[in-house]
Every structure is written in structure tokens, then in C-alpha cells.
Write a protein that binds this DNA or RNA. Structure first.
Length: 807
RNA sequence: GGUCGCUUAGCUCAGCUGGUAGAGCAUCUGCCUUACAAGCAGGAGGUCAUAGGUUCGAACCCUAUAGCGACCACCA
């Protein structure tokens, strides 16, 4: 027997234990077609907020849907505990920094701290009813993952897609590491435009340069003007004298200089921005690198050496002012590139790093993007945009401590890189030595380990390979090439999706997955993204589960449209709560009437029963169409709508028949029993995608003790009840009008109708006659007059029996 | 500035391939009806951002404009 009230907290715990014990979501090879899901390993950098719950739950619903359609679901979960985010977590939480306590100690702390968080993440996702198989779960810094990541590196190196080169790279002074283009975030900051006067050496011709970065004056290697610029053409070929610094540089012409911007004269430094790097390469300019790696001016610069960048800026501006070189200062707001992990402005650095070739294979990446089905389709454009605009090869070196090491040493004498053997992976070059005794190039017997580690994306881009246990004897390569589905939010299309495609192309020459499903973000308020820095995520997921239950939170997550941002709304939670309550109550009602029910062949369905079965069949077809398009929210929407109609219309009609067989006959009662038996089963199945807990409780209580609803299969109905749907709908409309009349008369719906006069089409008359007992009982009709009319129906008169109603 | 998306009832949103505007919440009016008052029945509330165009017919297709948002590019 179902309880009078549904106790979500108790039941959700019960079913979590049951699913775990009975291995309901375990992946086993069983010959059935595999549906595999590549879900984002959440970054372990603090707390999971409601935004994570939103997008993961949408994915999860799809897994449940495919499971109900008979697929063998390969749905692993992972955690991204690799690299910089973990370091920052440890720094923040323990107040310890790697360079203070040493690399080994620090790494240990990273492992311990991320482990701790992962346990709580696991608990949270489990509680949300995520139907992942925790046996195939992975971490991005485990030995097996490191092995795959290092193997990938060696593969790419062998294939020539990976190179080691001294090259300008984006550099973060805060994190003390190089970073990749994809890790940039633009930020608006207030700054000043400084107009500085220069003179030519040859003839003291004056000209002005406007710059936001006067501290780069010592790094100027030349000055550019546009060759078409009438005003400044006379400068070309002359030599500019840099004030304060007292250095002379050539003045060159390049069409990339905008005549309108600033003063039309540009200083070129190594390096202020990307254009500087382009010019540096194009004109073979000298390198004047003036910053240290931790954001100070190098000591060899007189006067300014040792100052922090911002201090140097201030000092140089003061000196320019004192010398009378500063013409004016303009306030401006502009966007600068910052490091997404720490928010600090990035600089450029020139060191030897490992790069993965991107620029030579852009067309291949576009081609693979075309082979993948994007949901929603317009997200494909974002991918193309990114690939088309990318300007750098992918720098995968990070000068950090915690993460995947490069399996590389260098000859101490000639610098020749020595690579580990693949069968020896994983290796840590800091504590292990190469397995050769001398450099193959120069014979030197001493080696230095690569101290850099890899970009976290270099590893997380390998999730399909991690999932397929790439390179292992027992692997899933046969079923996961490609995987069926990748899901993530739109912000990481340019990183995770793109890099995964890059790696898949280089390793296998093919797409990593067939489908990509992109979810939206959760906004704290309209137009305001949830972010940790703003602290505007008011709701802790755990608290919400406690307050509302996981099923209810899932309802909220399930209402979001694919790719569309949603605002967190307690109102929606309330709506879900009501829906779940209604499912419980109607199940109780149905249970009541099934105590003597036996399932058997039956061909005498009542008209109204055909109507509701046909309506359900029609709805379910659309429901499945939506889910096949990955539109979880739209599917839930129509299911919910049908369900309320089922309760408010069908159940209200059939209840009389179920309660009073002596009046309606036992066969009509059986027809009703059969109908609710079938429909509740199917409704529970469909709802189980969204509400795995309550549907399991009802299913096992009413249908199959000790068999999980989540491993049943949806069997589509195959009735031909179009006529019944159409005419049944008309009947319901008439019922609604009659109820309206009672409500308007301020009387109870039980008030009898003395006489109901209708005009009805021939078909409808026939239909009403076939369900005359249901029809009359539902409205408490004493006398019914039907006049035949051409089409549809018309309600002529509703005469209420006030005398009877008073009793 | 570029790419993409959004703009529908007071609020949050749904409206699939064009055919007389929908739901929930809020509001108003009734109803304790043997599953459910966390309920039921009903009412009121919208020139579907704006302006053009295509069409017999446009919330939906096309063009332009405005506002909002995301991502990217702009550091002289």
C-alpha cells in the first residue's frame, strides 16, 4: 500500500541504496546497442552550485530516456582534479603555496584536498539521482589517466603534431605560468590613454603616440605608421628618439596601423600585444623583453629595474611629465585580456614550450564539426567561429607543480629531448631517470627533467580516450569510437569540445562523438550569471534537496530549454512539488481500484477509455520526438500537460464506473481498470526520466516488486483511436461548459442537471450514446436531450436541479 | 565591431514544419466532490519589441531598427 503522504527524504534514501545494491546502472557488455555519454568532469575547485545541477541533470535525463528505449548505457562520471584549479584550491584553503613547501609536499596536499571534495561531489550527484556507473568513474590525475595523457603526448609527438619551441606565449604573472588562448577572459577595466611626444633624431620632427601602457617604453623596438597616412608619411624611414629611456628606434610603415586610432602612430614593443608579435616576426625585429616572469621590470633596465609593472607605469608617467613629454592624459575604459582562472591581466613571455599544432589543421577541425550533430543546431556556429578565429597553436606547457608531467628529459649538454618509452608510462621525470645511459646525439650522460606540467585541457580533452581505456588490454575502443553524446554548457565549446575534437582527429582521424548537446546557464537574476565572485548563488544544492527533494529539483532542471539560460525560480520548484504530489495522489487512487485487478486480454474498451488511451499514444509519440531531439524540457512540458488532463478529466469520468460496478456493470469497470493500469504504468515510465525516485516507489508497489522501473523498456501503444480522440475531446468540452454553468451558479459540481439540451453532430451523438453512462454520471445529468446538427456541437440549455442539490 | 541567441498576460516561461494566442504563479469568483484544499471548477488579463515585406492568412518566414544576453575581437 502506498503511504498516505509521500515522504521524499526517506524514500529517496531507500531507492539510492536499492539502486546501488542491485547495480541498476552498472554497465555490462550485453550485446545491446551501446549509447555512450561523455559528460563533463566537474572541476574540483570548491563547491558545486545550482548551475552544475542544472546541466548535469539534463544530461542525466537523456541517459534515463535512452535506457528506457533499450540502449545499453555507458555513462561514466569523472572529476577534473588536475592542475591549476586544484593548486588554487589548496592555496586558498590551506594558505600554502608550492614554492614555499616544495613540490612533493604540495602535490600531496592537492591529492588530499581534491579527494575530500570529490567525496562530497559524489554524494551530491548521487543524491540528485544521477544514474552513472560509479565503477567506470575516472579522475584526471590518477595514474591511469596520467598514463593515457602521456601516451597521447608521445603519440602526437611521433605523428609530428606536437613540437617544442621557444616562442612568445601568453603569460600569467599571478599564476606564474604560460596559458592558452582559450583560457583568456576579457574584462573591462578603467585605464588612461597617455599622449607622449617623440622626436625624430634626423630633424627633430615632433610626433605623438598615445598609449595605455607607458611602462613598455623601454621595450619599444620600432615605431609604425600607416603608409597611406598623409600626416605622418614624412616620418617613414627616420629614427625615433624615445624620451626618458633615451633610446633610438627606426620608424617603419605597415598597413595594419589604423590612421584614425589614437594618433595614428604606434609603438611596437616585444611584447605588448598580439600585433607586436606579428610585426616582430614579419620585420624580424629584435627582442627586448623587459618583464620578469613574476611581473617586474628586469634589473638591467636602468632606474625602473625591479619595479612591479604598475609601479613602473606610474614612475614612467611621472618622469614623462617632468620632462614635458606628456601632452595629455585621457581616461578610457577598455577591455583587456585576463587569465580566466585568476582574473589578472596577461602578458607575453618567450620561453621554450610544447605546442600542439592547430593552425595547419583548422580545415579538418571544421570538417569534423560538420560531421557532428549539434543540439541546438545554432551552437555549431559558435564552434566554427572559434576555430576560424583562433590565432595560435595550442601551448600545453604550464610552469606549475601539480598535474600531468611531460614524459621528457633533456640532454644537459646539447638539450636534445629524451622521451620515455610508452610501456614505462606513467613516468615522473622529476624522480625517474630515462632508460638510456647517454644522449643519442652527443653522448652526454647527464639529463635534466622537464619541470613543466601539461595544461589541464591536454588531459581533459582525452575523456573519450580515458573512457575507452585507450592503450589498455581490456578496453572499450570497439564501442566508444565515436561516443554517442557529449554534453556541456556553451562556455566550454571553445575549450573542452574543441580540444577533444583536436585530439580525436590526431589520434583516430575521426570525430569523438556523434552528438553534442549544449545546455544553458543558470542565472541568479535575469541577465545576471551565477558566479562565485559575485556570491549570488543563494541556494546550496544540498539545502534545496533537503527542502524540496531531488525529484523536485530535477523538475526545475528539466524545464529548461536546450541551450537556453534559465533563472533560478522557487516558483518552478513549487510547481514541481505540486506535480509530484499529484502523481502520488492519483497513484493512490488507482491502487485503490486495482486490488482485484488481473491483467488479461480484453477487447471491450469503453469509448472514453479509448479516448484517453489514444490521447496518450498521440502525446507519447511527440514526447519521444522531443527526446530524440534532446529537448528534455519540451518533452516534460507536454507530458505534464497530458497528465493534468488525465487527472482532471479522465479520472473524474471513470471514477464513477470504478466505484459502482453494480450500477455500471463489471465489464465497464474492468475496462476502466485496464485503462488506468496501462496508463499509470506508462506515465510512470515517462515520468521516471525526470522523477526517478517517486516513480520507482509507485512502480514497485503497484506493478513489480523488486524490479526497477529504470530498466524497463518503453513499448509504444499502437491503437487506432483518432475518431475517439476527436469526439472524446468534444465531450470533454461539453462537460467543461456544464461544469462552468454550475460554478457560475455558485453551486457544487455534484448539483444534478435536471435537463441538458445539446445540439450534436451525428458522430458525436453516436459517441455520447456509446458512453452515455459515463457522460451522465460525470455531470449528474437526470435528463439529456440531443438534437442532431450538421457539425460539432452546441450547448442549448443547462437546467440545474437546485432541490436535489441541497440534500 | 564580429558571431549567435532572446524580446509573447503583472511575473516565470511554452507555442513543432505559418491557419482564429497557451500554462504555472499572482489576482478575482465559487466548491470540503468517498486520490489529492499542496485540491477542484470557473473568470479577468496579451494590437506576440518596433517598422516594412512575402502570403488568402504571420508570434512563427524575409529585411531593417531598438533593447537585453553569451561568446569572440578590439590593449597604438
Amino acid at each position: 500500500m502506498l503511504d498516505k503522504k509521500y515522504n521524499a527524504e526517506e524514500k529517496e534514501k531507500k531507492w539510492l541504496d536499492y539502486w546501488k545494491e542491485n547495480k541498476i546502472y552498472e554497465f555490462k557488455r550485453n550485446g545491446k546497442e551501446v549509447y555512450s555519454i561523455d559528460t563533463p568532469p566537474p572541476t574540483v575547485n570548491g563547491k558545486i552550485h545550482i548551475g552544475h545541477i542544472f546541466s548535469y541533470t539534463q544530461t542525466e535525463m537523456l541517459a534515463r530516456y535512452k535506457r528506457l528505449r533499450g540502449y545499453n548505457i555507458f555513462y561514466p562520471f569523472g572529476f577534473d582534479d588536475n592542475g591549476l584549479p586544484s593548486e588554487r584550491l589548496v592555496e586558498k584553503e590551506q594558505g600554502k603555496r608550492a614554492h614555499e613547501i616544495g613540490r612533493e609536499e604540495f602535490s600531496k596536499l592537492c591529492y588530499e584536498t581534491t579527494d575530500k571534495y570529490e567525496d562530497s561531489f559524489k554524494e551530491l550527484f548521487s543524491k540528485m539521482g544521477v544514474s552513472t556507473d560509479w565503477n567506470i568513474y575516472y579522475k584526471t590525475v590518477s595514474p591511469s589517466t596520467i598514463k593515457i595523457s602521456q601516451t597521447s603526448f608521445l603519440d602526437l609527438k611521433d605523428k609530428g603534431f606536437c613540437y617544442h619551441k621557444e616562442s612568445p606565449a601568453l603569460w600569467c604573472n599571478e599564476c606564474l605560468t604560460s596559458i592558452a588562448q582559450a583560457e583568456l577572459e576579457t574584462k573591462k577595466i578603467k585605464s588612461t590613454f597617455n599622449y607622449i611626444n617623440f622626436k625624430t633624431v634626423e630633424d627633430n620632427e615632433e610626433f605623438t603616440i598615445a598609449t595605455t601602457r607607458p611602462e613598455l617604453l623601454p621595450a619599444i623596438v620600432c615605431v609604425f605608421v600607416n603608409p597611406e597616412d598623409e600626416k605622418h608619411r614624412s616620418l617613414i624611414g627616420k629614427t625615433a628618439h624615445i624620451p626618458v629611456i633615451d633610446v633610438e628606434v627606426p620608424i617603419l610603415a605597415d598597413e595594419k596601423v589604423s590612421i584614425e586610432k589614437g594618433t595614428g602612430v604606434v609603438m611596437c614593443c616585444t611584447f605588448g600585444d598580439q600585433t607586436d608579435i606579428e610585426w616582430w616576426k614579419k620585420y624580424n625585429l629584435p627582442l627586448k623583453y623587459i618583464f620578469t616572469d613574476n611581473g617586474r621590470i628586469i634589473d638591467s633596465i636602468p632606474k625602473y629595474g625591479g619595479l612591479k609593472i604598475k609601479e613602473a607605469r606610474k614612475q614612467i608617467v611621472e618622469d614623462l611629465q617632468a620632462g614635458g613629454y606628456l601632452v595629455k592624459i585621457e581616461e578610457l575604459e577598455h577591455e583587456v585580456q585576463t587569465h580566466e582562472r585568476c582574473g589578472k591581466e596577461v602578458e607575453y613571455s618567450v620561453i621554450k614550450q610544447w605546442f600542439i599544432d592547430i593552425m595547419n589543421h583548422k580545415e579538418d577541425f571544421i570538417k569534423i564539426g560538420n560531421e557532428i550533430k549539434w543540439h541546438p543546431t545554432y551552437m555549431h556556429a559558435r564552434y566554427d567561429e572559434w576555430v576560424n578565429n583562433i590565432a595560435w597553436d595550442w601551448c600545453i606547457s604550464r610552469q606549475r607543480y601539480f598535474g600531468v608531467s611531460f614524459p621528457v628529459w633533456y640532454c644537459k649538454k646539447c638539450g636534445e629531448p629524451i622521451f620515455a618509452n610508452k610501456e614505462d608510462l606513467p613516468v615522473n621525470p622529476l624522480v625517474q631517470l630515462p632508460k638510456i645511459d647517454k644522449c643519442p646525439k652527443c653522448g652526454c650522460k647527464e639529463f635534466e627533467p622537464e619541470t613543466d606540467i601539461m595544461d589541464t585541457w591536454a588531459t581533459s580533452s582525452l575523456t573519450p580516450l580515458i573512457n575507452m581505456r585507450y592503450g589498455e588490454k581490456e578496453n572499450f575502443e570497439d564501442i566508444l569510437k565515436p561516443m554517442s553524446l557529449r554534453t556541456n554548457a556553451s562556455e566550454i565549446i571553445r575549450t573542452w569540445d574543441f580540444y577533444t575534437i583536436v585530439k580525436s582527429f590526431y589520434h583516430f582521424g575521426q570525430r569523438p562523438w556523434d552528438n553534442v548537446m549544449i545546455s544553458g546557464f543558470v542565472m541568479a537574476n535575469k541577465g545576471e550569471k551565477i558566479s562565485k565572485s559575485k556570491g549570488n548563488s543563494k541556494h546550496e544544492p544540498m539545502d534545496l534537496i533537503k527542502q524540496y527533494s531531488a525529484d523536485v529539483i530535477r523538475y526545475w532542471a528539466g524545464t529548461g530549454r536546450l541551450g537556453t539560460d534559465i533563472v533560478f525560480s522557487e516558483e518552478t520548484l513549487l510547481r514541481g512539488k505540486k506535480l509530484i504530489n499529484k502523481i502520488w495522489n492519483v497513484s493512490k487512487f488507482i491502487e485503490m481500484h486495482l486490488s482485484d485487478y488481473e491483467d488479461k486480454e480484453f477487447n471491450d474498451l469503453e469509448y472514453i477509455d479509448k479516448w484517453i488511451l489514444g490521447s496518450f499514444q498521440k502525446m507519447e509519440k511527440q514526447f519521444i520526438d522531443y527526446l530524440d531531439q534532446y529537448e528534455v524540457g519540451l518533452a516534460l512540458n507536454i507530458l505534464e500537460k497530458f497528465f493534468w488532463e488525465f487527472c482532471d478529466n479522465y479520472i473524474e469520468i471513470v471514477k464513477h464506473r470504478l466505484y459502482r460496478p453494480e450500477e455500471f456493470g463489471s465489464l465497464p469497470r474492468y475496462s476502466g481498470q485496464k485503462t488506468v493500469y496501462i496508463l499509470l504504468y506508462k506515465l510512470l515510465q515517462d515520468f521516471s526520466i525526470f522523477f526517478p525516485f517517486i516513480t520507482e516507489e509507485i512502480f514497485q508497489e503497484l506493478y513489480h516488486n523488486n524490479k526497477s522501473i529504470h530498466i524497463t523498456e518503453i513499448q509504444l501503444l499502437n491503437y487506432n483511436f483518432d475518431k475517439e480522440i476527436e469526439l472524446g475531446n468534444q465531450m470533454v468540452e461539453i462537460i467543461s461548459q456544464a461544469r462552468g454553468a454550475k460554478t457560475e451558479a455558485n453551486v457544487t459540481l455534484k448539483m444534478p442537471i435536471k435537463n441538458l439540451r445539446l445540439g450534436v453532430s451525428k458522430d458525436l451523438k453516436e459517441a455520447i450514446n456509446k458512453s452515455i453512462k459515463d457522460f451522465k454520471a460525470t455531470l449528474f445529468i437526470e435528463n439529456l436531450d440531443m438534437e442532431e446538427i450538421e457539425n460539432s456541437y452546441e450547448v442549448y440549455d443547462i437546467e440545474l436541479n437546485f432541490e436535489e442539490g441541497k440534500e
